[in-house]
Nucleic acid binder design. Sequence first.
DNA 1: CTGTTAGCGCCTTCAT
DNA 2: ATGAAGGCGCTAACAG
Lengths: 338, 338
Amino acid sequence: MTMRVRIEDVAEAAGVSMKTVSRVLNNEPNVSERTRQQVEAAVEKLNYRPLPSARVLAGRKSYLVAMLFDNPSSNYLMEVELGVLDACQAQHYNLMLAPLVYDAKNIVAQVESLIVQSQLDGVVLTPPITDDAGVLKRLDELDIPYASVSAKEANRRIGVIVDEQGAVCAMMAHLVSLGHRRIAHIKGHPAHGASNWRLAGYREALKRAGLRYDRTLVVDGEFSYASGYAATNALLDLKQRPTAIFAANDDMAAGAICAICERGLSVPRDISVCGFDDTPIAHQIYPALTTVRQDTREMGRLAGIELLREIRERSSGSIVDVPYTLQLRRSTGPAPTT
Amino acid sequence: MTMRVRIEDVAEAAGVSMKTVSRVLNNEPNVSERTRQQVEAAVEKLNYRPLPSARVLAGRKSYLVAMLFDNPSSNYLMEVELGVLDACQAQHYNLMLAPLVYDAKNIVAQVESLIVQSQLDGVVLTPPITDDAGVLKRLDELDIPYASVSAKEANRRIGVIVDEQGAVCAMMAHLVSLGHRRIAHIKGHPAHGASNWRLAGYREALKRAGLRYDRTLVVDGEFSYASGYAATNALLDLKQRPTAIFAANDDMAAGAICAICERGLSVPRDISVCGFDDTPIAHQIYPALTTVRQDTREMGRLAGIELLREIRERSSGSIVDVPYTLQLRRSTGPAPTT
DNA sequence: CTGTTAGCGCCTTCAT
DNA sequence: ATGAAGGCGCTAACAG
């Protein structure tokens, strides 16, 4: 039975006092570089990790942050979570997962109770909670630092974003270069800011390409496979079908491909399809999906880093812009010649 | 800004010692009924709530359990995690996520350090850590309660299982009833017990159907999409192709479908494909995948419940058998008539 | 720059 | 049945 390694043991191993070890652990100033390295070596060697309860009890901080999310079963959130976890572990913070039931009626109360009961030092917000005015207001009132992942423009203070509108424009340009002129768009869930940006990018791209905006080609969706499937069936019933479909996320694009195949049509020969996110499903369907990749895990990590920075030193967290990349795969091809 | 109410304040208000208040709070014996009521009244009046950190630091329990896992980006684990979270929240325990690098060399040390440093009250094990003899041995030595999700038979003490062999047999019977005689199997990752059960079920089913075991029809895989794709290409290169492919999980089945489509063949007209797990991808690919469904979230929840039961009262946790169901979808059909 | 001395709020052990 | 003293592991405040 191994005994727990305490700060005292690290101090002894490094030949310094407990307090000096504590300084190093908390990135406090007034430690010489040499001493810092000695302490870090000892921490590494003994594999020391501070006991959260003791820190909380002695100090004023809880070293606990939570990630707030709504729809728990999405690949997107899983990836973000792992990234946030990376950031927290690197700085010896604990991460609490807070699955919320996104119900406008009591969401604010849920959040407040969570923060007070658990003594949270800060929270990471994910869509669509990033854009709930009530939650944001209460967070400000409680003076709790928070970082948002892909918040709407108006709500951005600290966190990460991707230039989604630019990404959509770039993807649309690709479709246009393939000869497509009738390009449809399946919108995302209206509560998510991403839905707006992606739609904005779609319209912007049409304008740049000199194509007119045809509202019959823009249909509602809600980010789910089923909604993409339904939306595509509506598009296929049109007198004049689109030659390409840009779905606001991969799941809906997968649903679109299914609907197209079921009618005996071929992707991309008859209709090209592209998505957004580059979730695992993108390369696990046939044909592999052309999509926009955003590094969600990295986004989570950066959001975590900015949050912790803000917690450590107020007003020092910022917005980080994470680059996107186009993943051109088999689901897009030249427009059919009519 | 009010000062925090401490146990001392309650003691004073009730006219007793701190320890007596503590006894009442923890339902310990040796408190007269009259005293108990006085204390409870004081607690109520002052709206006192014990501070978790202080409790953990002073006591021996941490109210913290961890879920150990290896491959973080799998739908399977995400679901299990949510289930475990359900169980923990219901009993006011905290869940810590422990992504491990499964490297036989230091996995035991990683686990030990995690447990000791974080003062874990128990852990939930997921495959393949469930079957790492070194880890299990050390867990027993440390006398740390643990619950396993789908452990190998020999390692089952507390946790949840599914009759995977029976499930595979049932699915195979379905294929046989569709007229298939040349049925291939893509094996799972060798370190996972599930791979063995599924292979065993495959052989068992062949025997029951009076079909001979043809080793050229059984190929290696490792649960990844890419491995399913590669394995299927090998099968399609055979002089005598299979008419059905049973992949040990859904990701590999998706890879199989892709490989088949790429050769211009059709699923299920030329070849039927089925998988295992019923992860989201199963109904997000075309054609929708016939597969075995196991309720992974429920499995996580039950594993959490059994673990907490064991923590509360030793030797009271047990093994729970979770039922499976066959999901018959479009990827399987009648065997082609030769 | 570094070390010493007190606790943080609660539970444990050992008295009474 | 109850209480007093001591410490859990860490950090804040104050020395040097």
